[in-house]
Write a protein that binds this DNA or RNA. Structure first.
Lengths: 228, 228
DNA sequence: GACGATAATTAGTCTAACCTAAATACTGGG
DNA sequence: CCCAGTATTTAGGTTAGACTAATTATCGTC
């Protein structure tokens, strides 16, 4: 019954939709129309329309008024885009002088234009990295992805020391700010204190104390492993 | 009187049209609708329609039934695309293991997706080359291009020694064949003989004799300068 | 169990870019 | 100088993907 076996190439916007849906719910929980619309900066009716087309093509399942979930085929296509995006980011940072705050926009366009060959050449030049400059894992070419268990800094108890493993942010200005605090993947931080209002967290980063807010503390994903 | 000063970004196909028109006539001679249609693999009416829109936007001038010519603005946009294409080709060959026969298709897609920043970074990594892997000159960022005087091999008199400077071909299979004959930019060849039928040319390339046909001898552009 | 807020969908348009079929203009030979 | 052949344009239609306005579902609250 599965439609569209001879998968014709996906369009740019189809690729964007699939990637967005995957990112809204890597675990496969249904994503809502309005979440997708918000993430892609489109109107809700546009999303409904596209979702209908994509479900006819077997890339996702749509239960009206309930949300959408990627099919295996859809998830494979989405992971392919995620792999491309993250490898391109890693390549641009490593070889072409990009910094982590400027690389997202460039990768966002290139991910639709590169061939599989080029992606794999870039992966080779990088030595097949497992994470991108923000610490996000790079799916393998066969579509498997290894999410390592991590906790948002907002959930780390006071007194604990953790390592930042991923920084979930893509706006250049915010990323520059985060970098200015000394925060990036691999850095060790200790939670010193937590305020009872606004969820402010005081942390120690390389002998300096920093106070960070709710949104940032949720964007910093950490691991406990002191081993390295 | 010139329309569209605040030039909104061009679409992919507009970029393709402008580049095609430039390539059909770098000197600015009018290009015909059907030449453009043939080069872009589109129908003639499609070209007429697009040409009308582009002339309204001030990118070219169209005299119905007579052909089109790029305006300054159009030529600038076209040269920008040519620069991108050739720099991308050079970069992929230099750093990512591409050979001159495979690089065209990749560059054809990437040229629409890269930012000006990325193009200039690639140029920097290459040391600001003046020619691409096929020997074609790379326009400068400010839109000037330096075509060096050259003659098609088909027009080189018998007995003369020349250097191949450019290879005007983009089909992978043909490029592999050309490479297999030892022909590429920079190589010295001597015209040994020319047949009175079919314009076959016998040349000497690195102590080997090769016979080449009409189409190839026209695609090989040569310079006389023995100086290097 | 009705009701209002919010989310989602349907209905109806619009634009860019393509197409085919038909009509029109140019051009070279008799 | 007319006419046939070719090149070009006009007419009309399609598709993908977006939009706004209007309608319909769902859900939490009283």
């Amino acid at each position: 019954m599965s439609a569209a076996v001879a998968s014709e190439p996906l369009t740019r916007s189809v690729e964007d939709y699939l990637k967005a849906i995957y990112q809204l719910s890597p675990e496969g929980r249904p994503a809502s129309t309005s979440e997708i619309a918000h993430l892609l900066a489109l109107s809700a009716p546009s999303v409904t329309g596209m979702v209908k087309r994509l479900s006819e093509h077997g890339l996702l399942e749509h239960i009206p008024y309930r949300g959408v979930q990627l099919t295996d085929q859809g998830r494979r296509a989405a992971l392919r885009m995620v792999r491309r995006h993250r490898l391109i980011e890693a390549y641009l940072v490593e070889f072409l002088g990009y910094s982590w705050d400027t690389v997202h926009a460039e990768a966002e366009r290139l991910e639709h234009a590169v061939s599989d060959t080029l992606v794999e050449r870039m992966a080779g030049a990088l030595g097949h990295p497992s994470v991108d400059p923000h610490g996000d894992p790079i799916p393998s070419a066969d579509g498997s992805i290894q999410e390592l268990a991590c906790v948002a800094l907002s959930d780390v108890p006071v007194g604990e020391a953790v390592a930042i493993s991923r920084v979930h942010e893509s706006q250049p200005e915010r990323l520059r700010y985060i970098a200015s605090l000394g925060l990036r993947p691999g850095v060790q931080v200790t939670v010193i204190d937590r305020q009872p209002i606004d969820d402010l967290v005081t942390i120690e980063v390389g002998n300096e104390k920093q106070v960070i807010g709710r949104e940032l503390s949720r964007a910093l994903l950490c691991t406990h492993e002191a081993n390295r």
